[in-house]
Amino acid sequence: MLGRRGSLRFLAVPPFAWLIVLFVAPLLLAILISFRAERGPIDFGSLLQASTVQYEKIVGTPSWLRLLATSAGMALLVAALATLFAFPIAYFLAFRARHRAPIFLILLLVPAATSFLLRVMAWKVLLGGSGAINSFLIWIGVIQDPIGLLLYSQAAVVITLIYVWIPFAALPIYAALQRVDRSHLEAAADLGAGPWSRFWRVTVPLSLPGVLATLFMVFIPTVGEYVTPFLVGGTDGFMYGLLIQDFFSRAGNWPLGSALAVIMLLVTVALVAVALRVVDLRRAVA
């Protein structure tokens, strides 16, 4: 028999092995490849010949660094708005839906079970010059010509990403709101706090762990997003992740693509670390 500690270690082996093989090892490989001077067949010998040529290229290309900053800014906007729009949904599920909460939760998550590509392509149909939104606005006479901004733009990328993220963004907030002790709200009401006051001074602070988890959960992967800008971004909605994808698959330049990815990883980790230092969760909740 393994005993309790032995059992825990045994159970931890598969996920750790998974993490090491499918995350740590590829990440280390990407870092090694980023130090190759030029593209070509990769073997162990060439991996040990380090060069900073790719990093020098990136540092010497201000437009790529600006693109990273822009992409981070778009990711922050998507995270903030997705969190904002998801909060009322999570609040409804936690405080209003009662015994129907599981049904509403399923309804919220069912669209997420469909193909991601199909959902994004559907936005092309909605947002296009001849799409449903423009056609409706022209039909009711609000506009004469289609609004080009709705597709192949940064706005289209942001709108589509918010739509994609809302169902997932609601979940951490819902989990945090479910943990809110109702007696706190009753006590606040007994002390004379009105509904808005109870919401802002009791509910919102107690939901902050979930809100912050949502912000990070949305922000981090969105920085490197490339499918949505590829489909609806056009030339204006180009994001840093698409630059990495271009160099890997279209240019076959793995060293430069890897270097771009490593820089994105470092910047994202740095931003998250700064945010965690700035936002002291214990003080925020207290």
Binding site: S63, W64, D246, F247, N253
Partner: peptide, 18 residues
């Protein structure tokens, strides 16, 4: 050549990022 393709694809990356 490979060098030409590398230079041209990097050029295009700078165009798209602008």
């Amino acid at each position: 050549t490979d060098a030409q393709r590398t230079a041209w694809t990097e050029m295009w990356g700078r165009v798209k990022a602008e």
